[in-house]
């Protein structure tokens, strides 16, 4: 099926976690882009800003750059922000 000459319109829409830094800062109440996190699927440690952000969807999905597994999901409803962190083994916040 795969055709190397095919341009996948989805790939052109993918951003990195820095592009959704504002959304994440609001969701977590902290600046997030330089926070390291471990992918629960493959163990790769990436900064949140390095995750691959799929924003053209009902919510925002942040995926591991190594294995494409879902690390974080954020949904904003009219009254709440929901964050799914099951794909992160941990997130590391430095105490300053």
């Amino acid at each position: 099926m795969a055709d190397d000459t095919t341009v996948d319109p989805v790939e052109g829409q993918v951003l990195d976690g820095n592009a959704v830094g504002g959304l994440l800062a609001t969701a977590f109440g902290a600046e997030m882009t330089e926070v390291p996190g471990e992918c629960a699927h493959c163990g790769t440690v990436s900064m949140v800003g390095e995750l691959r952000a799929y924003v053209r969807a009902p919510g925002t999905v942040l995926r591991c750059p190594a294995c494409s597994g879902v690390v974080l999901r954020v949904v904003e409803t009219p009254n709440a922000t929901l964050i799914d962190v099951r794909g992160a083994a941990y997130l590391r916040f430095e105490r300053r």
């Binding site: 795969a2 989805v10 790939e11 829409q13 993918v14 799929y54 053209r56 999905v61 879902v70």
Partner: peptide
């Protein structure tokens, strides 16, 4: 026909 996607496009051979 807008394309919405929550992840990379899978390409499973038929």
């Amino acid at each position: 026909f807008p394309v919405l996607s929550a992840g990379p496009t899978p390409r499973t051979p038929l």
